[in-house]
């Protein structure tokens, strides 16, 4: 795609002090680019959930955001434990978060459902013991 911009970020694992930092950076960029508020809202929600998942479950990873005039394509790649049962993980309310993490207000089991709800297309490629790659596409509306 000729007209697209690509931003790449590293997510630190287990560092809650940086939680939401990348989502916030991307949101600011999309605002500067003049994207519609509804698109930005969806990206912010999906990115925050995926970023938190990377910190909680996967010891970090990378996020690549590709912005074109029609579509936002986001790739979350980690080398975490993988998801043994994707259907189960997609169920609202199902969570494998630790007690410690739940006390911070996470582990509601809404992460993946929220990501799906706020994207136009979502794919999950995961292998237990190797990692997970989630790709999202949002149409610029």
């Amino acid at each position: 795609m000729s007209n697209s911009m690509v931003f790449r970020y590293d997510v630190d694992g287990d560092d809650f002090t940086l939680a939401g930092e990348i989502s916030s950076k991307v949101k600011k960029r999309l605002k500067q680019l003049g994207l519609p508020p509804e698109t930005i809202r969806k990206v912010a929600i999906a990115m925050y959930e995926a970023e938190i998942n990377m910190v909680i479950h996967a010891n970090g990873g990378t996020i690549t955001v590709e912005v074109s005039p029609e579509t936002i394509h986001i790739i979350f790649a980690d080398r975490g434990p993988g998801i043994p049962d994707i259907d189960k993980a997609m169920e609202e309310g199902f969570s494998t978060a630790s007690h410690e993490v739940r006390e911070l207000g996470f582990g509601a089991g809404m992460g993946l459902p929220n990501i799906k709800k706020n994207s136009d297309k979502m794919t999950i490629d995961t292998k237990v013991g190797e990692g997970t790659t989630i790709e999202l596409w949002m149409e610029v509306c």
């Binding site: 911070l104 509601a108 809404m110």
Partner: peptide, 26 residues
């Protein structure tokens, strides 16, 4: 709960919570 706030909190809303960690601000 962060996920619920992320979904349901609207722009310009006051958020009442007992969570005190950084994620509330994020």
């Amino acid at each position: 709960l962060m996920s619920l706030a992320m979904s349901n909190l609207e722009e310009g809303n006051l958020w009442i919570t007992i969570q005190t960690n950084l994620n509330v601000i994020a």
